[in-house]
Design a protein around this nucleic acid. Structure first.
Lengths: 152, 152
DNA sequence: TTGCAATAGGCGCATATACGCCTATTATTC
DNA sequence: GAATAATAGGCGTATATGCGCCTATTGCAA
């Protein structure tokens, strides 16, 4: 009975991307009945927690590129889950806020999310999951500098 | 001097997706001069390691959806880095293989990847990185069942 | 105040991700 | 051997991701 685990990846990036695909599919499966994807759920949840925010603020919180968040707002705005307004005090800023409909949808999705969290803990181990999240928080706050393009 | 780290996410999925975005941007920045994205580099590297493989085999190895890999092959095939043939013994199968051009490009990219790995270890800690990769390998092999849609 | 720098965000483009449905091909069963 | 099941993969659709370049707006300096 050869029950060894496969070799872990040598590549940090591949390792985390594989895991991200694995876990995202799982959470997406749980959230599917609510019509929200994992990314959309995260956006709604964080925006609800932060309160009205600009695109830059929310994108930084989600460790997401500014333009990525901007595009991800499209479906949410179209479905009336997020309101996008202009800051009257600085009209460069867009003010994002969760609508009432968005809050309701978020509340429904949160039930499914809780189920997913519990099952995840059961399968992977609660303490292990907490430790992993902690490690990932450190990683996200680790500055990784991209090399400059060489001067011409 | 309030140097506390921000609270780790409670959501396993958000935590790992944030980290994946963070790390992917870093590796993509290093690989950019080679014209390869991180995903493409991973595909080439794994295919080179596995030898000629079918789409299903390679997709499973990469923890990637079959259709995702299928589409990601497009640019690689277009640029002559991967050859896609039909298995004469079972014509349902596509046989993927790294071309000579692909091998050369992979070799160049591997240099940049090695730099990225070293700098990653320096910033995050080599042993911590190894432990994280090990943990993620366990996670990827943890079965997470998606709930069945309710019967009508 | 006017003119330049800095900031916030949009948009084109290209790739990445995956579900559902489809065809082609092979394996199985009667 | 013909009908059927199972498997491999393609394709439509939709969202996710982010770089480079652009405009709009604001802050700052001469």
């Amino acid at each position: 009975m050869d029950e060894r685990l496969p070799q872990p990846d040598l590549c940090n990036c591949l390792a985390i991307r594989k895991a991200a695909r694995h876990v995202t599919q799982y959470y997406d499966g749980h959230l599917a009945p609510t019509g929200l994807r994992t990314t959309q759920f995260s956006i709604l949840a964080r925006l609800k927690r932060l309160g009205p925010s600009t695109i830059n603020e929310l994108a930084a919180d989600l460790v997401m590129d500014r333009t990525t968040l901007g595009r991800n707002l499209g479906p949410l705005e179209r479905d009336g889950l997020v309101a996008v307004g202009v800051d009257p005090r600085d009209r460069r800023n867009r003010i994002l806020d969760v609508t009432e409909t968005g809050a309701e949808r978020l509340a429904e999705a949160r039930k499914r999310w809780t189920d997913a969290q519990h099952e995840f803990d059961a399968a992977f181990g609660g303490p292990q999951a907490a430790a992993l999240r902690q490690t990932l928080a450190v990683l996200v706050n680790t500055e990784l500098r991209t090399p400059e393009a060489s001067e011409p």
